[in-house]
Amino acid sequence: MNINLTLIGQIITFVIFVWFCMKYVWPPISGALAEREKKISEGLNAADRAREELERAKAEAEQILRETREEASHIVEQARSRSNKMVEEARENARAEGQRMIDNAHSEIEQELQSAKAALRAQVSSLAVRGAERILESSVDEKQHADLLDKLTAEL
């Protein structure tokens, strides 16, 4: 239990050990720890940033999708209305054309009728004139008369 040189020996040992620890043990380990801490915090930051980015991209994609969908439905709507209009127009055109053709046909028939009537009238009159001439030329006998009239009627 007596104090002796061990005390001095321990002091020297202590000084050497602390010096060694401070010089060769502490800096590499604490440096590595600090480095790792930095790396981990950087990693966490990067993860956070990536998550934010993802969120933003997702929102953007959704926005684009919504706009596209709107546009598509708009286009479809437009197409539908235009096709309706076209069909309507075509129908209208067809109806007008038909009407016109019918009208044309009517007027043609009318014309045809008029010209036929005129021709007939002309023929009747010429026949009448010819008949009258014949009657005047030949003696008027009943029999001949009747023949003539028959011919006339047949001709009519």
């Binding site: 040992t13 050990f17 060694f20 620890c21 060769y24 043990v25 502490w26 800096p27 590499p28 380990i29 440096g31 590595a32 480095e35 790792r36 790396k39």
Partner: peptide
């Protein structure tokens, strides 16, 4: 003391992140 220093020194030498 040497056990302590040798052990820690060995880890310190190959300490990485």
């Amino acid at each position: 003391g040497l056990v302590f220093l040798v052990l820690f020194r060995r880890v310190a030498k190959k300490a990485d992140t």
